[in-house]
Simulated assay, not measured.
Amino acid sequence: MAQTRIILDTDIGTYYDDAVAVMFAAQSPELIVEGVTTCYGDTHLRAQIAAKVLEISGRSDIPVFKGIGVPMRDEALMFGFEGDGILEPGEEPAYEEQHAVDFMIETIMNNPGEITVVTLGTVSNIAHAIIKEPKVVDNIKELIMMAGVIVPIVDEKGVRRSPIEEYNFNNDKIAAELVLRSGMPMSLIPIDVTLGAPLLDEDLERIRTSDSPTAKLATKIFDLWPPQEKLIYTAVGIPTDHTALWLHDPLTVMHAFDRTLMQTYPLHIEAEYNASPVEFEMYIHNTNGKQDMLRTNPKKLPPNMDVALEVDGVAVSRLFADRLIAPVGNGVA
């Protein structure tokens, strides 16, 4: 079986889907996870969370590296629930001393054309890697990003479930602009597509009734999520009842080895800025005094990346549950 070598870059902790995406990657024999790197906010705590998740997944062999937590401009850190249901009080899991950016550069440059970077949060680490070593652009195999909005959608309750401006890119807009203009091979998995991949009730039940350590941890995290979701959505101006457990980040990881789950199209995506009303609390703290938001509208220009526009949500849910209920260590081929 051909394996894809990846670096998994994550803001694990704020939402449930990063943690279960790390479990999914650790449990996927199609992947060689070279390392997990952390971004956005308290990257030390995020690295500890990642290390604990990998330990529970039986994959302490996968190294974890602390990365860039501060955006290149502005400061828009949203509160989260960092480590709830994962870390015990006073627990301090160890991780690698090398910085995530240096690890990325070293791994990509020592393995030209072989390393795929999958980003589940800001693109801060890969942007800094490009600045420090521009040849990363020519030596990376692919960058797969969970980010952006192509077609904003509204759910059956009339709630706009995807914003006009997406969270990951806007938490480090300058990094996103740099990466989008880098010219490296890229795939974009936008939130309007990931919202087509909820965890189905029957697959959630398979996870809940499994004795697998990964399934047990996922169940614990899922049970904590609905009240957390309500607080977060209320803080950003979209009070709503719990809707679904969306597989944003696991779906993005899946794309590293399975191109049948989503239909992608070659499009030209640029970083463009639009003035927006202050709709989200996270945007109030821009230090430049403007509410300029990065958007990812397609342009009628030569394609610069592949963009997912359609998803087989049923297949995604099934595959996700299959991996989480599998025996721990399933990801070691």
Rank of each mutant, 00 (worst) to 15 (best):
Y16C: 02
A19C: 10
F24Q: 12
E30V: 01
V36Q: 14
V36H: 10
T38D: 11
Q48C: 12
A50Y: 04
I56G: 05
G58W: 08
G58V: 08
G67F: 09
G67P: 08
I68D: 07
R73C: 00
L77W: 10
L77Y: 12
G80D: 06
F81I: 07
E82D: 08
G83C: 01
D84L: 12
D84M: 12
P89G: 03
P93N: 10
E96N: 11
E96V: 07
E97M: 11
V101K: 10
M104C: 13
I108C: 07
I108L: 05
E114G: 02
T122W: 00
I126L: 02
H128R: 11
I130K: 07
I131F: 10
I140R: 07
I140A: 04
M145Q: 06
M145T: 03
M145E: 00
M146K: 08
M146P: 00
A147H: 04
G148N: 06
P152L: 01
V154S: 09
E156L: 13
G158H: 09
G158V: 14
V159G: 04
P163N: 14
I164R: 14
N170I: 06
N170T: 12
N171D: 04
A176R: 06
E177I: 00
R181W: 07
P190L: 02
V193D: 00
L195G: 00
L199T: 06
D201T: 13
D201H: 09
P213V: 09
K216M: 13
W225C: 00
P226V: 05
Q228G: 01
K230C: 03
I232T: 08
T240W: 05
H248C: 08
P250Q: 04
L261H: 07
Y265I: 07
Y273Q: 03
P277I: 09
E279D: 13
Q291L: 15
M293T: 02
P298L: 06
D306A: 05
V307N: 03
E310M: 11
V314W: 09
F320M: 07
I325H: 06
P327Y: 14
P327V: 10
G329Y: 11
G329W: 13
N330I: 04
G331W: 02
G331C: 02
